[in-house]
């Protein structure tokens, strides 16, 4: 059993509209896999079903051999699945480091602790995570004044606190400057390599996808139309059809 995540015939429909239609795939241990597709293809819906924000209409999700279909987000998190969101949801009233400390308090089962001062707890540990994403110098700034790209990195640090075995990242580089995108994905790739974390991410920036992903899946109108390495996906006629005019983009990416 080398698959950390296995998805079988996953389906989500809303009053007759099918957002995700019978998607099956798997993510291997230590793999960095991308899920791409045009807007509205069902990427975020798919993610939300994997981490429990949405309940699938049909189908099942296995994490490390255990069925997690329909479990609550917090239960899935406790099992070792990390998640970042397309639109960041950090705690605005806390400092940068407190956001990380909060996750650590949850990880160490300290949520119903009334005694200690929270801002002193796990501060060293939180610093290390901030250091990983290069945010240590901003640790004591209020989260509300952070630049968008920094928020994205903070989210990544938060997602790493419970040492997840699988990390799901929904458009991790959206809204970032091109150089910052590459840097962030390089960071993710390093984490995958060093810590053995498996990562599944969605992305619109093909440079990022083709530069880093080991395997790529393409979702279109709720259906998986390709699943393979960069070359296979690039040469897939259905993918080229979906990304009309995007063919040049792929070629550039291939040349790069």
């Amino acid at each position: 059993m080398t698959d950390i995540l296995r998805v079988e015939d996953l389906k989500k429909s809303y009053d007759g509209f099918v957002a995700v239609n019978g998607v099956s795939f798997s993510v291997a241990k230590g793999e960095l896999k991308a899920l791409i597709g045009p807007n509205g293809a069902g990427k975020s819906t798919c993610f939300n079903m994997l981490t429990g924000q949405l309940r699938p209409t049909k189908g099942d999700v296995w994490f490390d051999g255990e069925k997690i279909t329909g479990r609550k987000p917090r239960e899935i998190w406790r099992k070792g699945v990390g998640r970042t969101f397309q639109i960041t949801g950090t705690y605005q009233s806390m400092t940068v480091i407190e956001n990380v400390q909060m996750a650590l308090m949850s990880h160490h089962h300290k949520l119903f602790s009334f005694g200690p001062r929270a801002w002193k707890l796990y501060r060293e540990e939180a610093f290390e995570f901030l250091d990983t994403v290069d945010l240590a110098d901003q640790a004591d700034r209020p989260c509300s004044v952070l630049a968008y790209g920094d928020l994205k990195r903070l989210e990544l640090a938060i997602a790493l606190t419970h040492r997840p075995r699988l990390l799901l990242m929904d458009e991790p580089t959206a809204g970032m400057a091109p150089t910052a995108r590459v840097a962030l994905m390089q960071l993710v790739a390093d984490i995958v390599r060093d810590q053995g974390v498996s990562v599944l991410f969605t992305e619109h920036d093909m440079d990022v996808v083709f530069a880093h992903a080991h395997h790529i899946m393409v979702l279109n109108r709720g259906e998986l139309i390709a699943d393979g390495d960069a070359n296979a996906v690039r040469n897939n006629p259905r993918v080229q059809e979906v990304y009309l005019g995007g063919g040049t983009l792929f070629k550039e990416a291939a040349d790069a």
């Binding site: 400390q101 909060m102 308090m105 005694g115 929270a118 801002w119």
Partner: peptide
Amino acid sequence: HSPFGYALR
């Protein structure tokens, strides 16, 4: 100021 208060926030 305790972890519980932080969780609440």
